[in-house]
Amino acid sequence: MSAHPTAATGALKVFPDREHLVHALAEHLLALAERTLAEGGADRPFRIALSGGSTPQALYALMAAPDYARRFPWARTQFFMVDDRFVPHSHADSNGGMLQRLLFDHVPVPKSNIFLMPDSGASTEAARRYEATLRRVTGLNTLPTAGNTTTPPLLDVCLLGMGTDGHTASLFPGQDVLSNHTDWVAACTPATAPHIRLTLTYPAIAASRHVIFLVAGADKQAMLARVRAQDTSLPATAISGLCDVTWYMDQAAMPLTA
């Protein structure tokens, strides 16, 4: 295992199409949850941060289906967010609202286990409030780094996507947030996408035990090839994790030279 797993070196899991892709990832998340809970004891929850996007929406719909929902340990899982547009949760562009409608409204997860990003007040203050929530719920004062075996992870799983411009979470090219290695959560305003955003920063994502990218479609192929070639102009290239970084993708997104 690499001492510093990154997006450029992480394993590639390739599936014939989106249907097979989301089914495989759903089963993988279930296995990770069961393993974490078995290893951690009765008081240890499974912590996962979720992203928005069209392909993750198919995953969440599958997880909400009765056959899957009856198997997942909802009561012992804490759900966080990777990023969100700073709009009311009732807004069509809200990731938090999407998660509530597609997933949380259909499964037996306690409301106290759901930690959506704030959707009101000043964005910078909202980012500080969400970081305070992460600190309170996890009990962490400092973030673990790769190779640290004594500090528990911030998250067990951080689920990411990637845009056709190489952004991930709300870490867009050329933004000041890319150099923020102090805060766990930050507000940002992308030049190429609508809305102010709240996002986990690089160090918060890197404090996750398992980082998983979910990408699909031929329009992601060229960008993924650039990440694998360690193109440092792309925000996704700088992503790392504590134990592993894994790409779950369909065949259409598979780079020819990965």
Rank of each mutant, 00 (worst) to 15 (best):
S2L: 11
A3C: 08
A7L: 10
V14W: 08
P16K: 15
D17C: 15
L21I: 04
A24D: 05
L32S: 12
L32G: 05
R35D: 15
L37K: 02
G40I: 07
R44F: 12
A49W: 02
P56N: 03
Q57M: 10
L59V: 05
A64Y: 00
D67T: 14
Y68C: 11
R70W: 08
R76H: 13
Q78R: 15
D83N: 02
H89P: 09
S90I: 07
D93W: 06
G97H: 01
Q100R: 15
V109E: 00
P110L: 07
N113D: 10
M117V: 09
P118T: 11
A122D: 15
S123E: 13
A126G: 09
A132S: 13
T133V: 12
R135H: 04
R135M: 03
G147K: 06
P153F: 00
D156P: 00
L159I: 04
L160P: 00
M162N: 02
G163E: 07
D165N: 15
H167G: 12
A169T: 03
A169M: 05
P173V: 12
P173G: 12
L178T: 05
A191Y: 06
P194L: 02
P194Q: 02
H195G: 02
R197P: 02
L198K: 01
T199E: 06
T199G: 05
L200Y: 00
A207L: 13
A207Y: 11
R209V: 04
F213V: 04
L214H: 01
V215Y: 07
A218K: 13
D219V: 01
K220D: 04
M223E: 06
M223F: 05
A225S: 13
R226N: 01
V227A: 09
A229K: 12
Q230V: 13
D231V: 06
S233R: 14
I239N: 01
C243H: 15
Y248F: 15
M249Y: 07
A252T: 08
A252Q: 14
P255Q: 08
P255W: 08
L256K: 14
